[in-house]
Design a protein around this nucleic acid. Structure first.
Lengths: 158, 158
DNA sequence: TTGTGTGCAAAAGCTTTGCATGTTG
DNA sequence: CAACATGCAAAGCTTTTGCACACAA
């Protein structure tokens, strides 16, 4: 299966999941919602709401920011995307279906974001959930630092 | 030593640290900066910039939001306070001097924030720093879930 | 005295909301 | 056709910035 075929197949699956979620919550299956889902799953890496909005506009898809924000919330509820705030007042999102749960290392100089997995996180979640009497649903672990050598180490403006 | 004496002694120490930081960076030791530091260390728990600003105002201390934000940045640089974003577009801060490094469990229903420590985090930081060639400076680990029973489980408005 | 810090208000940036219109079920 | 979703623009909220004045060094 080539990349395009794989993308098409993944999109079919997430569309099914999203449809189920909409039906379960008696929400409407509008073309905008599926167009946004498709746009997100056609790209890689992290993005913010404005970037997604611009992307849609660039493809001459008529959509409003309100709908983008609304749909992002729905997709987070559906567990199809994840929302992050890497220390700034700007929400970042990433698609999550079919990807292993992972955490992030962020370079405070160049803003680069790498991903990693560590099974100890799950152990901590289980243990702390029991200890504190919490039903843990999700988590965020961000490690911040400087990527020695591999970035030019110029501090970011924003 | 009673609570007030302890507070006074802690404030003396953080004042020394802050003074050193200001001098090292050739910044001015203004009364506003120390008043804000004192206000922060006279209270417990997490707070946001606006709450701090209001607190100062309520005590008839004449200070501006600009100065509050400026000073919060300085205190973060001095490692005297920590900045968090618990999933919302609002920075939260907490004093950190004299407190053990810790992470947070947040109830998504009632907003309650608990703290915990786990030595495995440090191991993960060391391991990932080496693996990814990062010099890790700090991290955030937030566990989100529902505090079963202990909260009234009414979802928060904001 | 000099230039950094402050207060104030305006501006900026991200997100939400109100309202009229469109469209799903 | 009735309720919900959308588009658009305005408003909301947190944070930043510009400018004149104050004050630390």
């Amino acid at each position: 299966m080539n990349t395009d075929e794989k993308r098409a197949s993944v999109f079919k699956e997430v569309k099914t999941i999203f449809t189920a979620h909409l039906e379960k919550n008696q929400l409407r299956k509008t073309p905008e919602r599926f167009a946004i889902l498709e746009e997100i799953y056609s790209r890689d890496d992290h993005f913010d709401a404005e970037a997604l909005y611009i992307q849609m506009k660039n493809q001459n898809y008529r959509v409003s920011r309100a709908t983008v924000y609304n749909t992002l919330d729905l997709l987070v509820s559906s567990d199809l995307i994840k929302r992050h705030q890497f220390g700034k007042n700007l929400a970042q999102y990433e698609k999550s279906y079919g990807f292993k749960q992972h955490d992030h290392i962020i370079c405070v100089d160049c803003g680069k974001v790498l991903e990693f997995c560590d099974p100890r996180i799950q152990e901590i979640k289980n243990m702390m959930g029991n200890l504190m009497n919490f039903k843990i649903t999700h988590h965020n672990l961000n490690l911040y630092g400087r990527c020695t050598g591999s970035c030019d180490s110029k501090p970011l403006e924003n």
